[in-house]
């Protein structure tokens, strides 16, 4: 059968209705579109524009340098260090966040579990707390005299206090743990929404057929929530690559760039300097370059998700 669309001649009333419907659609979308253009589109374009200049962001003296900022970035070891750290952070955060949040969501989706709403709320609370506040509190908790060292010492797991955020060996892992704890609630909600879409009778049928809880989960539930898993994975990956506020508050990218990710690199380069003026143009180039990488990763993951869905 031909796939070609058949052109149907519409009468004037149908056409009028179609235009009316389109206008309504645009009216509903317009507000979001305007806000997007103002607060996302315009800054992105500005950033690309500034990346072509040698500019401090503090003076009106802007010198057009073309792609020089990008060329310099390619030779900048600190930038590539931050680039690597961003991916190290993502590789550690995404699997932990996705699996732990799924574990809790599955656990808390059980209707027989008493006070499950209270558990859900307690796991979601860190999400609504401002990242900078979490950062400040965590600095105390993870300090060498903090509760973590006290507990680990009491359990005889360590014999000497460790400065978890001030030691380059442990800083990234500590930041990852705090980040997973803070954001896990968001993904738990997504998983819960997906799990609630799994029909109860299917689970019951599996149970009647003698499937264990684990088998039911892997053989029945997982295939049914796979489409949502794809979305969660994409969101979690992109969010982890954009991480800034928590890392800035916890370590500022230190010690000695051990937790320096692209966002902290961009912030530091754009607004501070040890000598000379800050480098807003250079920071814009770094942000643009990394933004392109994130878009590519997002597109690849999206394509993979589409293919996997088709295979199902």
């Amino acid at each position: 059968m031909s796939q070609k669309a058949i052109k149907v001649k519409q009468n004037p009333i149908q056409r009028k209705n179609r235009i009316k419907l389109n206008l309504w659609c645009w009216a509903f979308v317009s507000l979001t579109l305007i806000f997007y253009l103002l607060f996302q589109g315009y800054p992105i374009l500005c950033s690309i524009y500034y990346s072509l200049f040698n500019w401090s962001g503090m003076t009106s003296n802007m010198t057009y340098v073309g792609l020089e900022n990008y060329q310099n970035l390619l030779k900048d070891n600190v930038f590539w260090g931050a680039f690597r750290n961003s991916f190290r952070y993502m590789i550690m955060v995404v699997p932990l966040e996705v699996t732990i949040s799924l574990f809790f969501a599955y656990l808390l989706n059980d209707e027989k579990l008493r006070a499950r709403t209270a558990y859900r709320v307690s796991l979601f609370v860190p999400v609504v707390v401002t990242a900078s506040i979490v950062g400040i509190v965590m600095i105390f908790i993870w300090s060498s005299n903090g509760i973590i060292n006290y507990v680990l010492k009491s359990l005889r797991l360590i014999d000497k206090n460790i400065n978890w955020l001030g030691n380059a060996k442990y800083a990234m892992r500590t930041v990852v743990i705090v980040s997973v704890w803070k954001d896990m609630g968001t993904y738990m909600i997504y998983w819960l929404a997906a799990l609630q879409g799994v029909p109860a009778d299917v689970i019951e049928a599996a149970s009647v057929d003698g499937a264990t809880r684990g088998k039911t989960f892997f053989k029945v539930v997982v295939p049914m929530i796979a489409p949502t898993a794809g979305i969660i994975l994409i969101l979690c990956t992109i969010n982890s690559l954009k991480a800034f506020d928590l890392i800035q508050t916890l370590t500022g990218g230190g010690p000695f760039f051990a937790t320096d990710v692209i966002a902290t690199f961009v912030y530091r380069t754009a607004f501070t300097s040890d000598m000379g003026l800050p480098r807003f143009g250079y920071a814009s180039a770094a942000a643009t370059m990394f933004g392109i990488v994130v878009i590519i990763i997002g597109a690849v993951l999206n394509a993979l998700k589409g293919k996997l869905q088709k295979l199902q």
């Binding site: 001030g166 030691n167 380059a168 010690p255 040890d274």
Partner: peptide, 14 residues
Amino acid sequence: PSLASIAQGILSQA
């Protein structure tokens, strides 16, 4: 890394 960053690196044993 600047002189300041290197000094920070020494203090943090990084």
